[in-house]
Design a protein around this nucleic acid. Structure first.
Lengths: 201, 201
DNA sequence: TCGGCTTGTCGGGCAATGCTCGGCAAAGGT
DNA sequence: ACCTTTGCCGAGCATTGCCCGACAAGCCGA
């Protein structure tokens, strides 16, 4: 568990890309454990076997470093939350929700730390959250075969919030089996969308 | 705009209660604007007209101070999200949701800053969030006349997440009138609850 | 009016931390 | 063997969270 996949033979000279990857990997490890304000640049530098100064060469600000880490976590979440290949159109949505819920189930603590964690007031991080929600919303709308009107998007974003809430609850305490949760969520969406067609605007 | 309601005649000697209130008031003002890591004890002390040391006499740690501020914000949210008096049972839920959505609408930026903001990994603050969600869930279940089974609680918590998501979206950009949103949310809950009766456990 | 006790308050100071900067040295081409 | 590039060091500055010993404002009894 020394340092995130990359062996980090201390003393070697890494390429920009290797170093960035290593530093982000270390950040992913640490931020899964403690909040940002408890992550010190000293610790990161020590784990990476480099000087404090070098960290700021790669990420001019601690906020930038934090944003890069969250962005990496977001990429993982999005790439995990795709429909399995060779899935018939009718089961696309189920496949996506199952993948998403499974991801939360497998990585509950880090998930909560990353996506309910960072300073919500930081615009960089807020933007990343929005991108994730938008991407998931696009996928769900496409899989559900629904038109992407503004109202429909709002509803689907809300529905994702519901799914996330229940998935986190489930992984935490409630005894609902994952399969049931997925089926419930998929079954609930059409009704929510249908009832929204008359909504203002 | 000197300092949050309490006049704070600098130089006077305040009682413990007055001072605490004043400091929390200042925190509520500042945290509505910027994230926690950008709030310095110096700034708070300067605004309150006191020394840095005194702040730590009232809140032994910056996290404690932060938690006290968030707790105050949570109290305001909860006290605003009640059913209006003299509302018939059938409209209790509508009244609560309207109050909640109205609160978000009136205080969008502070709301997001406080309730999507704090370090999610800080257990104190996480506990406050949980208390708020639990309290709102209790109210909604009672108003809907539903039984408070574990599954129902999970569903209602998820439904609140949906309501919050849509309310924030609404206040931000989407053109859905607030009344429509409230009616939509209230109408959606029974279906979500009914479909959940068979859920595992 | 004086003395004494309680307690809100000051302000200097320590250690940690975010961030800067000038310069060194390893890698690689010629 | 030289030179250019560039990854990297490490000393140092300013800020900030936090501690602590001491002062003084307020109240009480005499």
């Amino acid at each position: 568990m020394s340092s995130s996949g990359v062996p980090a033979v201390t003393g070697r000279r890494l390429s920009q890309d290797e170093r960035r990857r290593q530093l982000i990997g270390i950040g992913l490890e640490i931020l899964a454990t403690k909040p940002i304000h408890a992550l010190s640049t000293d610790e990161v530098a020590a784990r990476a076997g480099i000087s404090r100064g070098l960290l700021f060469h790669y990420f001019p600000t601690k906020q930038d470093y934090h944003a890069a880490i969250v962005r990496a976590a977001a990429r993982r979440l999005l790439s995990a939350s795709q429909a399995a290949r060779d899935v018939p159109a009718a089961e696309q949505l189920t496949s996506i929700v199952a993948a998403y819920a499974g991801f939360i189930d497998r990585h509950l603590d880090p998930y909560v730390a990353f996506f309910h964690g960072g300073p919500g007031a930081d615009p960089q991080i807020r933007a990343i959250y929005d991108e994730v929600r938008d991407a998931l919303t696009d996928r769900a709308l496409a899989a559900a075969g629904a038109e992407a009107t503004p109202v429909a998007r709002t509803v689907v974003r809300g529905w994702w919030a519901l799914v996330e809430s229940m998935a986190v609850d489930r992984a935490g305490e409630s005894g609902v089996p994952e399969g049931d949760l997925v089926a419930y969520a998929v079954q609930a969406l059409p009704g929510l969308l249908a009832a929204a067609v008359g909504l203002g605007g």
